[in-house]
Amino acid sequence: MANNRAAKSGFAAEAQRKVNAKYSEELAHESLEWVASITNEAINTAGDMDNFYEVLKDGTLLCNLVNCIKADTIKKINKTTMAFKCMENINAFLEAARELGVPAQETFQTVDLWERQNLNSVVICLQSLGRKAGNYGKPSIGPKEAEKQERQWSEEKLKAGQTIIGLQMGSNKGANQSGINFGNTRHM
């Protein structure tokens, strides 16, 4: 747990301060309110880091959340507070979140929550899961996900696009090779 670690100093402390500075109390509060509404559990939804950590640290609420979104996703939820059992809960949540469609880059490591290393990544994961919950008929949070819009182009239109030089490539108007002397040496 977080209180079993030695205090960080030097570069490690500075790096931890930068990680903690990214944490958003508003997003954490929104996430906890969403969790409470989905699970129907009375939890403290204050967005400060201490409360956020205390509410989620054992992983049982996270496992209940996933099971409320999609029934029987997590078969066994450990109710004990033993460290490795709590980390099993968190890991089961992470696997279930990926299964429900949360991209791997928006998940977190088990130690980010259990050892309170990066609570911002936990908020990001909950926000991402909140967007995916709409796919399962549950209330969602955050911006709505984009819908796929396929376009069909004619062969003529595709060939017409090959003749255009994009602006990112620059312009070739007035271009010539004068003044280029690759391979030439200076003659004296």
Score class of each variant (00 low, 15 high):
residue 3 N to S: 08
residue 4 N to F: 04
residue 4 N to K: 13
residue 6 A to H: 11
residue 7 A to D: 09
residue 7 A to G: 08
residue 9 S to T: 14
residue 10 G to W: 02
residue 11 F to W: 12
residue 12 A to V: 10
residue 13 A to W: 06
residue 13 A to P: 05
residue 16 Q to V: 03
residue 18 K to M: 04
residue 18 K to A: 13
residue 19 V to I: 15
residue 20 N to M: 11
residue 26 E to F: 11
residue 26 E to D: 15
residue 26 E to W: 06
residue 27 L to Y: 10
residue 28 A to T: 11
residue 28 A to L: 02
residue 32 L to N: 13
residue 32 L to V: 05
residue 34 W to N: 03
residue 36 A to W: 06
residue 37 S to F: 07
residue 37 S to C: 08
residue 41 E to I: 11
residue 43 I to G: 01
residue 43 I to Y: 03
residue 43 I to N: 01
residue 43 I to K: 01
residue 46 A to L: 02
residue 47 G to A: 10
residue 49 M to C: 14
residue 51 N to T: 15
residue 53 Y to W: 08
residue 53 Y to E: 03
residue 55 V to P: 05
residue 57 K to T: 13
residue 58 D to T: 02
residue 58 D to C: 03
residue 58 D to I: 01
residue 61 L to P: 01
residue 62 L to R: 10
residue 63 C to V: 07
residue 65 L to Q: 09
residue 67 N to S: 01
residue 68 C to I: 01
residue 68 C to Y: 15
residue 68 C to N: 15
residue 69 I to E: 06
residue 70 K to G: 09
residue 71 A to T: 07
residue 72 D to R: 07
residue 73 T to P: 08
residue 75 K to F: 06
residue 79 K to S: 04
residue 84 F to I: 15
residue 86 C to N: 09
residue 86 C to Q: 13
residue 87 M to F: 01
residue 89 N to Y: 01
residue 91 N to A: 06
residue 93 F to S: 11
residue 94 L to H: 10
residue 98 R to S: 08
residue 99 E to Q: 14
residue 100 L to F: 01
residue 100 L to Q: 05
residue 101 G to K: 03
residue 101 G to R: 12
residue 102 V to D: 00
residue 102 V to F: 05
residue 103 P to L: 04
residue 106 E to G: 09
residue 106 E to P: 08
residue 107 T to P: 04
residue 108 F to T: 02
residue 109 Q to T: 13
residue 111 V to N: 15
residue 112 D to G: 06
residue 113 L to N: 09
residue 114 W to K: 09
residue 114 W to C: 03
residue 123 V to C: 10
residue 123 V to Q: 00
residue 125 C to Y: 06
residue 126 L to T: 09
residue 128 S to K: 05
residue 130 G to I: 05
residue 134 G to D: 04
residue 134 G to V: 06
residue 136 Y to V: 02
residue 137 G to T: 07
residue 137 G to V: 12
residue 137 G to H: 01
residue 138 K to T: 01
residue 140 S to V: 05
residue 140 S to C: 09
residue 141 I to H: 05
residue 142 G to F: 05
residue 147 E to Q: 05
residue 148 K to D: 08
residue 150 E to L: 10
residue 151 R to N: 02
residue 151 R to D: 01
residue 154 S to H: 04
residue 154 S to T: 02
residue 154 S to A: 02
residue 154 S to W: 02
residue 156 E to C: 11
residue 157 K to H: 11
residue 159 K to Q: 12
residue 160 A to L: 11
residue 165 I to A: 11
residue 165 I to P: 07
residue 166 G to W: 08
residue 167 L to T: 14
residue 169 M to H: 14
residue 169 M to T: 10
residue 169 M to E: 11
residue 172 N to P: 13
residue 173 K to H: 15
residue 178 S to F: 14
residue 178 S to R: 14
residue 178 S to A: 12
residue 180 I to G: 07
residue 181 N to C: 03
residue 183 G to R: 00
residue 183 G to A: 03
residue 185 T to P: 08
residue 187 H to N: 02
residue 188 M to V: 07
